[in-house]
Design a binder for these strands. Sequence first.
DNA 1: TTGTAAAAGGCACAAAGTGCCATTTAGATG
DNA 2: CATCTAAATGGCACTTTGTGCCTTTTACAA
Lengths: 211, 211
Amino acid sequence: MSRSIRPDALLEASRCAARLFVERGVSGTSGEDIAEAAGISKRTLWRYFRNKESCLAPLLALSWKRFSEELRAWPAQTSLEDHLADCFALENQTPDFVRDGLLIAQIVARISEEPDLKAVWLTSYFDGEADLAAIIGDRLGRSAQDFDVRLCAASVMAATRVVDEALCRAAIRHGRSYGSGEVAAQMARAIRAASVLPFCDPVKPGFRHEE
Amino acid sequence: MSRSIRPDALLEASRCAARLFVERGVSGTSGEDIAEAAGISKRTLWRYFRNKESCLAPLLALSWKRFSEELRAWPAQTSLEDHLADCFALENQTPDFVRDGLLIAQIVARISEEPDLKAVWLTSYFDGEADLAAIIGDRLGRSAQDFDVRLCAASVMAATRVVDEALCRAAIRHGRSYGSGEVAAQMARAIRAASVLPFCDPVKPGFRHEE
DNA sequence: TTGTAAAAGGCACAAAGTGCCATTTAGATG
DNA sequence: CATCTAAATGGCACTTTGTGCCTTTTACAA
């Protein structure tokens, strides 16, 4: 009767919720369904998550975390295009990442019908803006609190979101399939366009952007 | 006992909810409180709104609608700076607009503590992106569905959001007060910076932006 | 005035979410 | 290994949120 220890039950529950939301929609899946699928009690479910929608948040946050860590590792001498091409190359992705990415893509393809999913999804981008500001700030030798850096981060995040949404919709709903190079190129183009500050090109260490 | 007819009970309920959320927080106000304040039954409240948070949506949507209508009326020969200065000038604002603006500012100043408010707030910006894309598209002689136009709209919306948030926080939480000219200038600067496409300067009728 | 369609209300009920306390579990310690 | 402890989980009663279904009221036209 004793179960094996689950090291990250919360994240696993988040994945279960995502799968159910995709299969049956949000209103079609109850808290009980999610708890059962995740192998936890309802009480624990509501301890993990504030409410039904936010069951998704940890999965989205993880996905952003993996991406933002790759951005953190962006060498100062490399252009955005080259770095993203490298990040998105399939051989550099763990199977876990790919599985989660597919799940998220299915969620994103549904946001126009599911206002609750849309809300968590938007929130996760918003929450990522501070990280992105830190990355951009580092690259430019500026503070992450600098207003222009925050502005730039918000713009770039919005661009990322628009591309994500467009690609997910096209892929899931219209069966369009994308090579990793194509994804990297589209993303790089959008990010570059949305960059108020010049962080996309190779920068010298110690470089400091002038107003 | 017969009450006067309320022409826009839903919007009024939205304002009541906003006031209560500001006074007592979201979790501190029940559906019953909102219904009572708005003078409607609980049943009607839940017909008006999908859930507690989204009670705010109509107020936020109205505020965006008023702003987007001013942007729609932006003469092609006027620069962004001049037009915004005009829009924000106090003598051009109805008392209603000002009252709602103050209420919204109080909400926005609280979003960091209220995840549910944050979610509706972000959603309302997202929902406005299509309008903004239409406005930008018109100004540039491009389609609102054009990918670059949507990208630009999303970027500009993000910039608007960052400025809104910064000003509301500074005003409400730190007692900073802004003249309408100052607000217009900050907003114009951020929007211009975030503009991927050149829609901020006077454009000739029939002008068509080249890739 | 009466007819009528839409909006609002009442009420019972389902689902979401919390408070409180008992139980289990993972380690630490002797 | 036995035992102790703090944290995580579960159970259960209860509140709040939200819906289904039906009745009543309201606006307005004929």
